[in-house]
């Protein structure tokens, strides 16, 4: 990850000069190292050169847009992405989450809110207790923070990993979307439940044998989700 573990390094991709400058100022004041790029192309280049811990990505970009940038990053990288969307139009949010973003904030964003989201996302990659759990062919190693399926390593983003960890900590118990939002995303009571749904979809695509008929991560109608050992 970053060269300096104590100071997280961020990459801010935003085309508007004023917003870029202001957010850079604000985030630097919050104690982050911030690199900036004005276009998606520049951002992807900087990502390869600097290996930041997290990306804050504007949706409306000239050239390739934020969704496309997000998709391209996800092809090779599992580092956290927070979308900066100017419109809270629901289509934007859904498309953004489907393209692999971990969280989103709506403009005009308050620096403190963005900072809190960044820290929450970064915390998801932190290690914790040292035990492991097995769910069928799925093995979750909490000390190494790795998940293997049939002996193969799965590439999970920190958010996906955290979601799986929270679910695996209470096997067989249904967790509501609001609970998961608090546990994984550290959102307040107004968390967007679509974050959970989108992340569950992505997680299922990676851990389930047949993602369209899940046997591990089950939907509990009217409540939320539950992790089961396949019988």
């Amino acid at each position: 990850m970053g060269q300096n573990a104590s100071v997280p390094s961020l990459l801010l991709i935003e085309d508007d000069d004023a917003i870029r400058t202001a957010l850079e100022l604000s985030l630097t004041r919050q104690g982050h190292r911030v690199a900036t790029a004005a276009t998606g192309e520049d951002g992807l280049k900087l990502l390869r050169e600097q290996r930041p811990d997290l990306i804050v990505l504007d949706v409306m970009l000239p050239g390739i847009d934020g969704f496309e940038v997000c998709r391209r990053i996800r092809r090779t990288d599992q580092l956290p992405i927070i979308l900066l969307t100017a419109r809270s139009d629901d289509i934007d949010v859904v498309v953004g989450l489907e393209s692999g973003a971990d969280d989103y904030v709506v403009k005009p964003v308050q620096g403190r809110v963005l900072d809190a989201r960044i820290r929450a996302v970064l915390r998801r990659g932190e290690r914790e207790s040292s035990d492991s759990a097995t769910f069928g062919s799925l093995v979750i190693d909490r000390s190494a923070m790795t998940v293997t399926k049939n002996g193969e390593d799965l590439q999970l983003t920190p958010t996906e990993l955290r979601l799986l960890l929270e679910l695996s900590r209470r096997p067989g118990q249904a967790l509501s979307r609001q609970q998961l939002l608090r546990l994984v995303w550290e959102h307040d009571y107004l968390g967007d439940s679509r974050l959970v749904d989108a992340c569950v979809q992505r997680l299922r695509a990676k851990v389930e044998d047949v993602p369209s008929s899940p046997t591990l991560i089950r939907t509990v109608r009217g409540v939320g989700y539950r992790l089961d050992s396949p019988q």
Binding site: D16, I19, L23, A86, P108, Q110, G111
Partner: peptide
């Protein structure tokens, strides 16, 4: 209102620095 957002985003971010 959409156009107003862009400058407002920048102003909001900086205003917080002033507030602090």
């Amino acid at each position: 209102s959409h156009e107003l957002r862009t400058p407002l985003t920048a102003i909001t971010a900086v205003t917080e620095i002033l507030e602090e």
